[in-house]
Write a protein that binds this DNA or RNA. Structure first.
Lengths: 219, 219
DNA sequence: GTATTATGAATGAACG
DNA sequence: CGTTCATTCATAATAC
């Protein structure tokens, strides 16, 4: 094995047989395949959820069997402790993120109150929750910014020959790990091909079919 | 999900710079880019639709005066088979344990950096990994100390409202579940990465974020 | 295969 | 505000 540095993040180009082509490493191919599969499956899942919600909308209320759905219930037993930590519902989270993205980094006291009231429409929440959320959001956003460029260590050819670990078992596929850290807005996908926000369900379905057709080429 | 060399018609392989790589034409790349974008956008659209439906549901639920309970939360789907979690190598673990035992309970920022760099010699690692490791190590060390005499089982109160077959006691009660249809998907995608049909909405959202992360490599 | 455990990661809340 | 703690979630490892 030569000391060829393997840059995984760049697609190189070259001339092969007189054609200019992009080249991909197996890792990149696998990554790609994963990505497509994930998207495909997400779409399926979302479709399923949509169907379920749409067709059994009133059943949903009846089927609530959550064990910890009622933090307010003064149930006699202190054993079944409801979840003690507030967790934003997806809706609440959406609103919070939107407000956060608006940049008005100053959630004043009054603003907190307003937000709390608004979010109260979507679930149990308190001003403290909102306050804490913004505090944490800001702090962690900042932290991530401070650790942006992971010094890409180029691990030597991994000639670690240590054998002192009796539990030796790992057959690590060493190398490339993608850590889904949200830098910036993760939902931002550029280069949209569907712009209209009010597209119909059926159209989406057909789009999925098309996408699946493309996928078969690579999977 | 190993790199099965499934050559289609025009995807050739070759040796470049000592690496076996796939080559793609610009057309293929473009096709691919389109495909990913389509999926990404479909996901967003579906999410929006889902949110809309959910909102109505929420309002309906409130009107009924029911105790609030988010039907989408608390789903515990899993089984995403993708390598995404850092796992310390035995060597790294050894070093970490040693540092932890040295007692300096507070690995400061700078220390984290140093440790990360040092451990980077033995495999892929990031500062966050180190940070998390110490956090967890401390927390669990403390918890163990606190729970030596605690009985193994927390006596369940009979508030348990559901009798579950021993076969699926794994899944906690969740308010939202889609029918586990067969894997007969409209488009044949093998090697799914999300297999559980009862995955939750927020989990899906995170998957989308992850997928978007992957995408950034190619878009 | 399925169920259980161990543990990396995420995050609400609290501390100083 | 930045940092730390406590709890929970998801998953790799493992036991069954």
């Amino acid at each position: 094995m030569e000391a060829e540095h393997h840059h995984q993040t760049s697609n190189a180009g070259g001339i092969i047989g007189g054609l200019y082509v992009k080249v991909m490493t197996d890792d990149q191919m696998e990554l790609l395949r994963q990505q497509i599969s994930v998207y495909a499956t997400i779409c399926q899942q979302l479709v399923e959820m949509h169907k379920a919600v749409t067709t059994q909308q009133d059943l949903a209320g009846l089927r609530l069997g959550n064990l910890y759905c009622d933090p307010l219930m003064a149930c006699s037993g202190h054993k079944i402790t409801a979840r003690q930590r507030w967790t934003p519902t997806p809706l609440q989270l959406q609103v919070l993120e939107r407000i956060f993205d608006e940049g008005n980094g100053t959630p004043s006291k009054q603003k907190i109150k307003d937000i709390t009231i608004e979010l109260g429409q979507h679930g149990q929440i308190s001003e403290t929750n909102v306050y804490n959320w913004f505090q944490n959001r800001r702090a962690r956003s900042k932290r991530k910014q401070l650790t942006p460029a992971l010094n890409v260590v180029e691990p030597e050819v991994e000639t670690e020959v240590e054998v002192e670990s009796p539990k030796e078992k790992k057959t690590r596929a060493e190398g490339f790990q993608v850590q889904p850290y949200e830098n910036s807005s993760p939902h931002r996908i550029k280069d949209m091909y569907i712009q209209s926000p009010d597209i119909g369900f059926d159209q989406l379905m057909s789009k999925i079919e098309v996408a699946g057709c493309y996928s078969s080429y690579f999977l």
